[in-house]
Simulated scan of single mutants.
Amino acid sequence: MSAHVIALRAIVAREALRFIHQRERFIAALVRPLVWLLVFAAGFRAALGVSIIPPYQTYITYETYIVPGLCGMILLFNGMQSSLSLVYDREMGSMKLLLTSPLPRWWLLFAKLAGSTAISILQVYAFLAIAYAFGVRAPALGYVTLLPALVVTGLMLGALGLVLSSFIKQLENFAGVMNFVIFPMFFLSSALYPLWKMAESSELLYTICALNPFTHGVELIRFALYGQFNGAALVWTLVAAGVFTAGAVWGYDPARGARRKG
Protein backbone atom coordinates (compact mmCIF):
# COMPACT_ATOMS: atom_id res chain seq x y z
CA MET A 1 0.00 0.00 0.00
CA SER A 2 2.99 2.32 0.36
CA ALA A 3 3.13 3.01 -3.37
CA HIS A 4 -0.57 3.85 -3.40
CA VAL A 5 -0.18 6.26 -0.49
CA ILE A 6 2.84 7.93 -2.07
CA ALA A 7 0.95 8.43 -5.32
CA LEU A 8 -2.07 9.80 -3.46
CA ARG A 9 0.06 12.27 -1.52
CA ALA A 10 1.94 13.36 -4.63
CA ILE A 11 -1.19 13.99 -6.71
CA VAL A 12 -2.98 15.80 -3.88
CA ALA A 13 0.13 17.91 -3.23
CA ARG A 14 0.31 18.76 -6.94
CA GLU A 15 -3.31 19.91 -6.89
CA ALA A 16 -2.63 22.01 -3.78
CA LEU A 17 0.45 23.65 -5.32
CA ARG A 18 -1.43 24.42 -8.50
CA PHE A 19 -4.19 26.00 -6.45
CA ILE A 20 -1.73 28.06 -4.39
CA HIS A 21 -0.01 29.35 -7.51
CA GLN A 22 -3.34 30.29 -9.10
CA ARG A 23 -4.75 32.71 -6.55
CA GLU A 24 -7.13 34.20 -9.07
CA ARG A 25 -8.82 30.80 -9.19
CA PHE A 26 -9.61 31.06 -5.48
CA ILE A 27 -10.93 34.59 -5.88
CA ALA A 28 -13.06 33.64 -8.88
CA ALA A 29 -14.51 30.70 -6.97
CA LEU A 30 -15.71 33.12 -4.27
CA VAL A 31 -16.84 35.95 -6.53
CA ARG A 32 -19.50 33.90 -8.32
CA PRO A 33 -21.46 32.80 -5.22
CA LEU A 34 -20.94 36.14 -3.48
CA VAL A 35 -22.50 37.99 -6.42
CA TRP A 36 -25.57 35.76 -6.11
CA LEU A 37 -25.67 36.15 -2.34
CA LEU A 38 -25.09 39.89 -2.05
CA VAL A 39 -26.60 41.19 -5.29
CA PHE A 40 -29.21 38.85 -6.77
CA ALA A 41 -30.54 37.61 -3.45
CA ALA A 42 -31.05 41.17 -2.24
CA GLY A 43 -33.09 41.95 -5.34
CA PHE A 44 -35.12 38.74 -5.24
CA ARG A 45 -35.74 38.78 -1.48
CA ALA A 46 -39.24 40.24 -1.68
CA ALA A 47 -40.35 38.16 -4.65
CA LEU A 48 -38.87 34.83 -3.56
CA GLY A 49 -39.35 34.57 0.16
CA VAL A 50 -39.37 30.92 1.22
CA SER A 51 -42.03 29.37 3.43
CA ILE A 52 -41.47 26.75 6.10
CA ILE A 53 -39.98 23.70 4.40
CA PRO A 54 -37.58 21.07 5.76
CA PRO A 55 -34.95 21.43 7.12
CA TYR A 56 -36.00 24.94 8.20
CA GLN A 57 -38.16 25.40 11.29
CA THR A 58 -39.47 28.86 10.42
CA TYR A 59 -39.84 31.28 7.53
CA ILE A 60 -36.46 32.15 6.06
CA THR A 61 -35.02 34.84 3.84
CA TYR A 62 -34.00 34.08 0.29
CA GLU A 63 -30.34 34.58 1.22
CA THR A 64 -30.58 31.80 3.79
CA TYR A 65 -32.18 29.45 1.28
CA ILE A 66 -29.63 29.84 -1.51
CA VAL A 67 -26.46 29.46 0.62
CA PRO A 68 -26.45 25.61 0.31
CA GLY A 69 -27.04 25.95 -3.42
CA LEU A 70 -24.12 28.35 -3.70
CA CYS A 71 -21.95 25.86 -1.81
CA GLY A 72 -22.94 23.35 -4.48
CA MET A 73 -22.04 25.93 -7.14
CA ILE A 74 -18.50 26.13 -5.76
CA LEU A 75 -18.17 22.34 -5.84
CA LEU A 76 -19.59 22.18 -9.36
CA PHE A 77 -17.38 24.87 -10.86
CA ASN A 78 -14.24 23.65 -9.12
CA GLY A 79 -14.90 20.05 -10.17
CA MET A 80 -15.16 21.15 -13.78
CA GLN A 81 -12.13 23.42 -13.45
CA SER A 82 -10.05 20.56 -12.09
CA SER A 83 -11.13 18.35 -14.98
CA LEU A 84 -10.21 21.13 -17.38
CA SER A 85 -6.67 20.90 -16.02
CA LEU A 86 -6.69 17.20 -16.93
CA VAL A 87 -7.34 18.07 -20.57
CA TYR A 88 -4.48 20.56 -20.42
CA ASP A 89 -2.17 18.00 -18.79
CA ARG A 90 -3.05 15.49 -21.49
CA GLU A 91 -2.18 17.99 -24.22
CA MET A 92 1.12 18.82 -22.52
CA GLY A 93 2.03 15.17 -21.96
CA SER A 94 2.17 15.07 -18.14
CA MET A 95 -1.12 13.22 -17.91
CA LYS A 96 0.16 10.50 -20.23
CA LEU A 97 3.20 10.07 -17.98
CA LEU A 98 0.98 9.74 -14.92
CA LEU A 99 -1.32 7.17 -16.50
CA THR A 100 1.61 4.96 -17.53
CA SER A 101 2.50 4.28 -13.88
CA PRO A 102 2.01 0.68 -12.67
CA LEU A 103 -0.68 1.73 -10.20
CA PRO A 104 -4.35 0.95 -10.96
CA ARG A 105 -6.04 3.52 -13.15
CA TRP A 106 -8.97 3.87 -10.73
CA TRP A 107 -6.58 4.77 -7.89
CA LEU A 108 -4.94 7.55 -9.89
CA LEU A 109 -8.34 8.98 -10.78
CA PHE A 110 -9.42 8.73 -7.14
CA ALA A 111 -6.31 10.62 -6.07
CA LYS A 112 -7.15 13.35 -8.58
CA LEU A 113 -10.71 13.46 -7.24
CA ALA A 114 -9.51 13.60 -3.64
CA GLY A 115 -7.21 16.55 -4.34
CA SER A 116 -9.81 18.59 -6.22
CA THR A 117 -12.52 17.82 -3.63
CA ALA A 118 -10.30 18.90 -0.74
CA ILE A 119 -9.64 22.24 -2.45
CA SER A 120 -13.36 22.67 -3.17
CA ILE A 121 -14.20 22.11 0.49
CA LEU A 122 -11.71 24.78 1.57
CA GLN A 123 -13.36 27.21 -0.84
CA VAL A 124 -16.82 26.35 0.50
CA TYR A 125 -15.82 27.05 4.09
CA ALA A 126 -14.20 30.32 3.04
CA PHE A 127 -17.48 31.30 1.38
CA LEU A 128 -19.47 30.30 4.46
CA ALA A 129 -17.20 32.44 6.61
CA ILE A 130 -17.91 35.47 4.42
CA ALA A 131 -21.64 34.68 4.43
CA TYR A 132 -21.51 34.44 8.23
CA ALA A 133 -19.94 37.89 8.38
CA PHE A 134 -22.88 39.22 6.33
CA GLY A 135 -25.41 37.70 8.72
CA VAL A 136 -26.32 34.47 6.87
CA ARG A 137 -25.66 31.92 9.59
CA ALA A 138 -26.39 28.27 10.28
CA PRO A 139 -26.26 26.40 13.61
CA ALA A 140 -22.71 26.00 14.88
CA LEU A 141 -22.88 22.20 14.78
CA GLY A 142 -24.07 22.40 11.17
CA TYR A 143 -20.66 23.54 9.99
CA VAL A 144 -19.28 20.23 11.30
CA THR A 145 -22.04 17.93 10.03
CA LEU A 146 -21.72 19.67 6.66
CA LEU A 147 -18.29 18.18 5.97
CA PRO A 148 -19.35 14.62 4.97
CA ALA A 149 -22.02 16.04 2.66
CA LEU A 150 -19.42 18.24 0.98
CA VAL A 151 -17.10 15.26 0.51
CA VAL A 152 -19.78 13.09 -1.10
CA THR A 153 -21.14 15.86 -3.33
CA GLY A 154 -17.65 17.04 -4.28
CA LEU A 155 -16.61 13.53 -5.31
CA MET A 156 -19.78 13.13 -7.36
CA LEU A 157 -19.31 16.40 -9.26
CA GLY A 158 -15.58 15.84 -9.67
CA ALA A 159 -16.27 12.40 -11.14
CA LEU A 160 -18.69 13.98 -13.60
CA GLY A 161 -15.92 16.30 -14.71
CA LEU A 162 -13.58 13.32 -15.17
CA VAL A 163 -16.14 11.62 -17.40
CA LEU A 164 -16.35 14.70 -19.61
CA SER A 165 -12.58 15.14 -19.76
CA SER A 166 -12.11 11.51 -20.83
CA PHE A 167 -14.09 12.10 -24.03
CA ILE A 168 -12.91 15.63 -24.88
CA LYS A 169 -9.54 15.70 -26.60
CA GLN A 170 -9.00 19.44 -27.12
CA LEU A 171 -9.01 22.18 -24.51
CA GLU A 172 -11.20 24.49 -26.59
CA ASN A 173 -13.94 21.88 -26.93
CA PHE A 174 -14.00 21.13 -23.21
CA ALA A 175 -14.64 24.77 -22.34
CA GLY A 176 -17.75 24.71 -24.53
CA VAL A 177 -18.98 21.42 -23.07
CA MET A 178 -18.58 22.84 -19.56
CA ASN A 179 -21.08 25.58 -20.37
CA PHE A 180 -23.58 23.02 -21.64
CA VAL A 181 -23.23 21.04 -18.41
CA ILE A 182 -22.67 23.57 -15.63
CA PHE A 183 -25.47 26.02 -16.31
CA PRO A 184 -28.26 23.49 -16.99
CA MET A 185 -27.25 21.48 -13.90
CA PHE A 186 -27.21 24.59 -11.74
CA PHE A 187 -30.37 26.30 -12.93
CA LEU A 188 -32.40 23.08 -13.26
CA SER A 189 -31.97 22.23 -9.60
CA SER A 190 -33.14 23.30 -6.15
CA ALA A 191 -30.12 25.57 -5.71
CA LEU A 192 -32.00 28.83 -6.37
CA TYR A 193 -35.64 27.93 -5.69
CA PRO A 194 -37.58 25.11 -4.01
CA LEU A 195 -38.83 22.36 -6.26
CA TRP A 196 -42.44 23.00 -5.28
CA LYS A 197 -42.16 26.44 -6.87
CA MET A 198 -40.91 24.80 -10.06
CA ALA A 199 -43.82 22.33 -9.97
CA GLU A 200 -46.27 25.23 -9.91
CA SER A 201 -44.92 26.55 -13.21
CA SER A 202 -44.07 23.37 -15.13
CA GLU A 203 -44.43 19.71 -14.26
CA LEU A 204 -41.85 18.79 -16.90
CA LEU A 205 -39.22 21.14 -15.46
CA TYR A 206 -40.00 19.82 -11.99
CA THR A 207 -39.35 16.26 -13.16
CA ILE A 208 -36.05 17.30 -14.76
CA CYS A 209 -34.98 19.08 -11.58
CA ALA A 210 -35.94 16.07 -9.46
CA LEU A 211 -33.81 13.78 -11.65
CA ASN A 212 -30.84 16.14 -11.65
CA PRO A 213 -28.01 14.67 -9.50
CA PHE A 214 -26.95 18.20 -8.56
CA THR A 215 -30.35 18.74 -6.91
CA HIS A 216 -29.76 15.82 -4.57
CA GLY A 217 -26.24 17.00 -3.80
CA VAL A 218 -27.58 20.45 -2.89
CA GLU A 219 -30.32 18.97 -0.70
CA LEU A 220 -27.76 16.76 1.03
CA ILE A 221 -25.72 19.90 1.80
CA ARG A 222 -28.81 21.85 2.86
CA PHE A 223 -29.95 19.29 5.42
CA ALA A 224 -26.42 18.65 6.71
CA LEU A 225 -25.86 22.37 7.24
CA TYR A 226 -28.77 22.32 9.68
CA GLY A 227 -27.70 19.11 11.40
CA GLN A 228 -30.25 16.88 9.68
CA PHE A 229 -29.88 13.75 7.59
CA ASN A 230 -31.47 13.34 4.16
CA GLY A 231 -31.23 9.66 3.33
CA ALA A 232 -32.81 9.88 -0.11
CA ALA A 233 -30.44 12.66 -1.20
CA LEU A 234 -27.45 10.66 0.09
CA VAL A 235 -28.47 7.53 -1.81
CA TRP A 236 -29.04 9.36 -5.09
CA THR A 237 -25.76 11.29 -4.72
CA LEU A 238 -23.81 8.10 -4.01
CA VAL A 239 -25.44 6.34 -6.97
CA ALA A 240 -24.55 9.24 -9.27
CA ALA A 241 -21.00 9.31 -7.90
CA GLY A 242 -20.64 5.57 -8.56
CA VAL A 243 -21.97 5.86 -12.11
CA PHE A 244 -19.75 8.85 -12.94
CA THR A 245 -16.68 7.21 -11.41
CA ALA A 246 -17.26 4.02 -13.38
CA GLY A 247 -17.66 6.11 -16.52
CA ALA A 248 -14.40 7.93 -15.81
CA VAL A 249 -12.48 4.69 -15.25
CA TRP A 250 -13.92 3.28 -18.48
CA GLY A 251 -13.18 6.51 -20.36
CA TYR A 252 -9.54 6.50 -19.28
CA ASP A 253 -9.07 2.80 -20.01
CA PRO A 254 -6.06 2.49 -22.37
CA ALA A 255 -7.51 -0.68 -23.91
CA ARG A 256 -10.52 1.31 -25.09
CA GLY A 257 -8.22 3.78 -26.85
CA ALA A 258 -6.27 0.95 -28.46
CA ARG A 259 -9.45 -0.67 -29.74
CA ARG A 260 -10.66 2.63 -31.15
CA LYS A 261 -7.35 3.17 -33.01
CA GLY A 262 -7.44 -0.37 -34.34
Rank of each mutant, 00 (worst) to 15 (best):
L160W: 04
P184K: 06
V243K: 02
L17P: 06
T237A: 09
E15T: 14
D89Y: 15
I20M: 12
Y226R: 14
L141W: 15
M178D: 02
Y143T: 00
H21F: 13
L234P: 07
R32I: 13
G176N: 13
K112I: 14
G115A: 03
R137S: 11
N212M: 03
L147K: 07
Y132I: 07
M156D: 08
A140M: 11
A47Q: 15
F174L: 15
R14H: 08
R9F: 13
F223L: 01
A16P: 10
T153I: 00
K112V: 13
Y88I: 12
L147T: 06
W250S: 13
I53M: 07
A159P: 06
A133K: 12
A13P: 01
L122V: 14
I130C: 09
P33E: 01
I11V: 15
A126I: 09
A210K: 13
I168T: 10
W250D: 09
A29K: 05
I74S: 01
M156F: 10
A255M: 12
G142Y: 07
L108H: 04
L146I: 04
G158D: 06
S2F: 14
V50H: 05
E172F: 09
F110S: 11
V218S: 05
L220N: 11
A111Y: 05
R222V: 06
L164D: 02
R137W: 08
F19D: 11
S201F: 15
V243A: 14
A131P: 06
G69K: 00
V50E: 03
A248Y: 08
L122M: 12
E219M: 03
L234W: 11
F40H: 09
A199D: 10
L84I: 06
R259C: 01
G262T: 11
A133T: 11
Q123G: 03
L103N: 01
E172V: 10
S101G: 08
A41F: 06
V35D: 08
I11S: 03
